[in-house]
Design a binder for these strands. Structure first.
Lengths: 262, 262
DNA sequence: ACAAAAGTGTTAAATCTACACCCATGG
DNA sequence: CCATGGGTGTAGATTTAACACTTTTGT
């Protein structure tokens, strides 16, 4: 990636808004999985108590998908992240959260935002969801005035504009596409146990799955390797570790994964 | 719908471009099914030989999804069409097809389009696909300078900008989601035969399906009613007609349709 | 009577479901 | 030696897949 420093922070926007696409923004729902819970990366402004989805505007000469990757990279240090468009939020009256943004501008930058400011124009926003390996993320805020944190998905959370709606729509999409995306490969570390994989699916589906049958089914797809290695330090029988076999996964993907409807 | 007359034609754009969103357009891939073939609605300008996907710009005070419905309505007279976003085409250099558009403008409107014209700015386009009942469509062009026709999906077709890519991506999406969307209900007329339904699936999947097993599976979902009626005038045993039962379909939808992965 | 496609039954194989039971580990 | 999950087998029910045979219709 050809990015040296963040261009998405507020300061950059204030200085030269005209380098950005005039009516399109991006919001990312970054999912992680840690200690049996789904996490989401959220940001907020120092001194304020509302949380937001990490997002940004799109540069005039920037491909929209690249913009999303750029944000992800600036935010987590990760490249080649599993990142998908899921919905364009295009309400006629959708825009930056007026009240919150005005407060932040005044407080942090000493700038008064009147209603005709570039910032207050209509923006449609492209929603992206990302699946990342929690253990590999190195959080770094997009600007000196922001914080970034992992938050539990189940806790209400973002109160900025329509970000809560966006986040839940992302979740809905993932649940919907569960048979078609490599959730496990993207959200778990290289090596993982069958239980971890199963709990991940249980969490996303919101229902318990039969341990025995889950294992059988998942292994039948034949793109997961059983390793000659076990997890140590647990207070019971140490479980076998598994890992995704990319080669085999690609083959299965071509054959249609779970698309085998008829 | 609160629309009286088309606002998407070129003339409207030329007169007052500033009522539109400055960098977002919409392109629709409208699918129909007729005589065992998948059809797509395409438009072209009188006197020119390239075809395009029907599309439009989004009004400043218009929800993006509504804009898509508006186009569909203006084009086909249909409301409440099954219409879904499928991809945002966001290349940095994506815009109106310069050459073709310039020619059309000069020839039909006597206007010279220089490179700095509003029209030549960067536009990202939201791709929508629609599934419509071929027999219900009443084609009406968006402007007096356009023609609209049903074209076979398999024939190369649109040669305007990236419209061919868009069309094929739409198809890919439908194939991908085949187990999750009511293709049959949307693309077939009220009453249809089992063969029609099967051929539809075969067409989309591009492979033959076992007649007996297809019927059994489809009926097992239990949202299709067998009617006391047969198709007449065929040169062989007249087939039973079926129709979708919306009530039952909704129930099945809630239960998860084909999402029953684990 | 024939061709063409509809309508239906059957059987073997594959998969799903729901348990049950033993195993290994740290405390 | 116990509690806690891991690992594996199995029997019965259900679903799939592949055929085959019969029926109906217009020509």
């Amino acid at each position: 990636m050809d990015i040296s420093k963040p261009v998405s922070g507020l300061s950059s926007l204030i200085q030269n808004p005209n380098i950005f696409h005039p009516g399109l923004s991006i919001d990312c729902v970054v999912f992680g999985f840690h200690e049996k819970t789904l996490k989401v990366l959220l940001t907020n402004y120092k001194g304020f108590d509302f949380w937001m989805l990490p997002g940004s505007f799109v540069l005039n000469d920037e491909n929209v998908n690249n913009a999303a990757h750029r944000i992800l990279y600036e935010l987590t240090g990760l490249e080649n992240v599993f990142l998908r468009q899921f919905y364009l939020f295009g309400d006629a009256n959708r825009r930056i959260d007026r009240k919150n943004t005005r407060d932040v501008f005044e407080s942090l930058y000493g700038i008064k935002l009147d209603d005709k400011h570039w910032f207050n124009r209509r923006f449609v926003t492209m929603g992206y969801y990302a699946l990342v390996d929690y253990t590999k993320v190195k959080i770094s805020p997009l600007s000196e005035n922001e914080r970034v944190e992992w938050k539990d998905f189940d806790s209400g959370l973002p109160e900025y504009a329509d970000h809560n709606t966006i986040m839940h729509k992302a979740m809905e999409t993932i649940r919907f596409q569960l048979g078609l995306i490599p959730v496990g490969r993207e959200l778990l570390p290289e090596k993982f146990t069958m239980s971890e994989l199963r709990v991940l699916y249980e969490t996303i589906l919101g229902k318990p799955l039969n341990r025995r049958n889950f294992e059988r089914k998942v292994l039948s797809y034949d793109y997961i390797d059983k390793l000659n290695e076990r997890l140590k330090g647990v207070a019971y029988k140490s479980p076998t570790l598994y890992s995704f076999n990319l080669e085999k996964y690609k083959q299965a993907e071509v054959k249609g994964l779970n698309t085998e409807w008829l």
